[in-house]
């Protein structure tokens, strides 16, 4: 293809996106579009899978049968999200094994929030309420992103995430209305998860490298700072409602902006965790890689069995024919 032809295709491609048409797997797409989508979608899938670990940490210790069932179902939903996001990613011509390889070698990233430890039961509430809350703010705009398989996956993911968020808030509410020990547990969890949740919306606009291109492809519709403000404005009244205090002494309502002003975020901490030195980065990777390695003989067996079955089928078919 000549350079001019490619340019022509690219222009048509950008026009289609501008017209809000969906790009489908078999459509022509620029290589950069494909790569960017593999990066973002796989990062999202990895986050779901790694995200199972901090919550899985409390399945055996959930305080009631009702909570145990809800937590199991939630973590199972996350595995399901991982599964269809990996599948959506595979439509771009990369296999799940290759994507795992990128995760296990540290080439691919996942959401840094999951590198924090879950130390009390209240963390199950805080993760649902704050972490899933921030995730929804990030993800709702993706329901209308330009790449069809991703957009469709996100519609389902968002529905389930919003259920998780309500469930998390309900855990926190119950604690906040409980005994002094329970209330203290809830406040402590909010104190630990608040700032990392704000960081989940990504670095400030000035430092964000992917924003402009992502906006054009509708992988992003609002800037990180706008999303963060939206999250804060939405969450502060919820904390007020259940009598918990946001751990930010600078937080106050700004009448003029009709928004909350808030204190400075510790970006050094953010970069420390992103670069692999958070409280649980190593534990998370060890757990993932360990499960994968321990499972190798199982996957090999399944493959060998399937091959034997196929061979048997072929042999019996041959016999029938002859």
């Amino acid at each position: 293809m000549s350079e001019e032809q490619i340019k022509n295709l690219e222009a048509q491609f950008e026009e289609r996106i501008a017209r809000d048409e969906k790009i489908e797997p078999k459509d022509w797409m620029p290589e950069k579009y494909r790569k960017t989508h593999i990066r973002q979608m796989s990062q999202h899938a990895h986050s779901e899978i790694i995200g199972m670990l901090p919550e899985g940490n409390w399945i055996t210790r959930a305080p009631s049968l009702r909570r145990k069932v809800a937590l199991l179902a939630k973590v199972q939903d996350e595995a399901g999200h991982g599964l269809y996001l990996y599948s959506a990613c595979e439509t771009l011509g990369i296999s799940r094994d290759e994507l795992y390889e990128q995760l296990h070698t540290g080439k691919a990233k996942y959401s840094s929030i999951f590198n924090y430890p879950t130390v009390t039961w209240a963390d199950m509430g805080a993760i649902g309420w704050l972490v899933d809350g921030a995730a929804i703010i990030n993800q709702v705009p993706l329901c209308s992103t330009s790449y069809g398989p991703y957009a469709r996956a996100m519609i389902r993911v968002c529905k389930e995430e919003s259920f998780h968020q309500r469930q998390g808030f309900e855990i926190m509410m119950k604690l906040a209305q409980g005994t002094p020990e329970q209330k203290e547990m809830a406040q402590d969890a909010l104190n630990r998860w608040w700032w990392p949740s704000l960081m989940m919306l990504g670095p400030t606009d000035a430092e964000s490298v992917h924003t402009e291109q992502s906006m054009k492809w509708k992988l992003k519709r609002k800037s990180n700072d706008d999303l963060r403000q939206q999250f804060i404005d939405q969450t502060v009244p919820q904390a007020d409602l259940i009598g918990l205090t946001i751990p930010d002494s600078d937080l106050k309502w700004n009448e003029e902006r009709q928004s909350y002003d808030f204190g400075p975020i510790d970006w050094d901490e953010f970069w420390q965790v992103v670069k692999g030195h958070g409280p649980c980065n190593k534990e998370r990777m060890n757990a993932r890689v360990g499960a994968w390695e321990r499972g190798e003989w199982v996957r090999d067996a399944a493959m060998a069995y399937a091959e034997k079955q196929q061979k048997r089928k072929r042999t019996s078919l041959k016999k029938e024919v002859s």
């Binding site: 899978i49 670990l53 199991l72 199972q76 499960a291 499972g295 996957r299």
Partner: peptide
């Protein structure tokens, strides 16, 4: 079975074992 959630040999077996636990 609940101990295993997130640690299975594949995503599919992980989902299945969690489902049985549920």
């Amino acid at each position: 079975l609940g101990e295993l959630t997130g640690h299975g040999p594949s995503l599919e077996t992980d989902i299945a074992c969690t489902n049985i636990s549920l």
